[in-house]
Design a protein around this nucleic acid. Structure first.
Lengths: 200, 200
DNA sequence: TAAAAAACATACCAACTAGTATTTTTTCAT
DNA sequence: ATGAAAAAATACTAGTTGGTATGTTTTTTA
């Protein structure tokens, strides 16, 4: 196989298996050995492509987590239509689309935030970037709602964006503790109510 | 020293040092060795008082985390006065009272939830109990507000309680990523707005 | 006060950890 | 085709992990 293609495939394989194992078992407690066993490659391959585990962690954050949040929570915001309806649809459809697996293991990004958000500045910055992107997209949509007179102009777009993100990430963690969706339904009711109250 | 007193002090010492180290470095990555080095006792003492690390984890959850949430977030709810004001005061004062240390490391319970909420049923149940206690207390207060005509009777108390808890735990994690309180201020603005909208 | 029991210390284990050093295999450029 | 370079495999290190086995010290009970 062509060398640069082969290299890229190996790096992607490591990235994919890492993401999966980090998601299921956490970052710190997933060893390089376990990851390479999953890829069916060896340690030699790993340390040829990544300087160390920290570099892998940063790659997973900026390449896998970022993409996931972007596709699931940010891009859907850039739709035409009523901003409040877009907000509700985005958050709701995201939750409803999760298989049990994703409900049991929570939000990959939130897991990282809580596990290593206070470990190293590099992780902090990488994770913060995702939150900031998400927040910016929400603010943009809320501002559009204000300008189109569908959202109350007296509310703070920043405050609403942060409150929306907080509640979503919070419930993704709390849902881990349950074996059914009741708590999610209550969250959804809370969200709907919240959004209704933002109407112009 | 008296035997049962000595035993109790040792257990408490282990519990206290464990809580601190779990909070700072996580549950899975804090070893029994590190804990016992912190207590200035030895492994022999540990395994005399605790069957294994899992039993210690459960003890920390039910004895340390439960107490913390109860004192900081539940008991303040049982005050006389306007329920909405009590809600705002409780959440706000809790956040304002945190030293930098607590802001950097997030919520001890939320850290546990996200790290081991999907690891074992025993952890799940122990953590869920705390959330359920908190939720029940919030619902009780909201219901009082409804009966006293200070809170809108058309909203779901359960939904509001869950949304309040979710947002609070969410922001406790997200705050880890920043080196100032701006994001907390935005959360607080979001919370105030939210509570205002619940008025009767 | 002596023996039993509880509290704690010491020494050890096999499995696992991140990372390195060295060798073999595959691809590339000439 | 051949030598260089990239990709990957193998073998290793020193330190850490949860837990056990076996001591020693302290307290209690009779």
């Amino acid at each position: 196989m062509q060398q640069d293609l082969k290299s890229e495939i190996t790096k992607q394989t490591i990235l994919n298996e890492s993401f999966k194992l980090f998601y299921e078992n956490g970052f710190k407690t997933t060893s390089v050995d376990k990851i390479m066993k999953a890829t069916k490659l060896t340690k030699g391959a790993f340390y040829h492509h990544y300087k160390n585990k920290k570099e892998l962690g940063l790659a997973v954050i900026s390449l896998k987590l970022e993409k996931r949040v972007c596709e699931g929570m940010i891009l859907p915001l850039y739709t035409s239509g009523n901003p409040l309806e877009i907000l509700e649809a985005t958050f709701l459809e995201r939750l409803k689309s999760f298989p049990i697996y994703d409900k049991q293991h929570g939000c990959p990004m939130n897991n990282f935030i809580n596990e290593i958000g206070d470990l190293e500045i590099a992780y902090q910055i990488a994770l913060r970037n995702i939150i900031e992107d998400w927040k910016a997209a929400l603010i943009l949509l809320i501002e559009r709602g204000k300008s189109e007179n569908t959202i109350n102009k007296n509310i703070s777009s920043n405050a609403v964006a942060v409150y929306l993100i907080s509640a979503f990430e919070g419930i993704r963690g709390i849902r881990k503790l349950y074996d059914n969706d009741d708590i999610l339904e209550e969250y959804i009711a809370g969200l709907s109510l919240y959004l209704k109250q933002l109407k112009a």
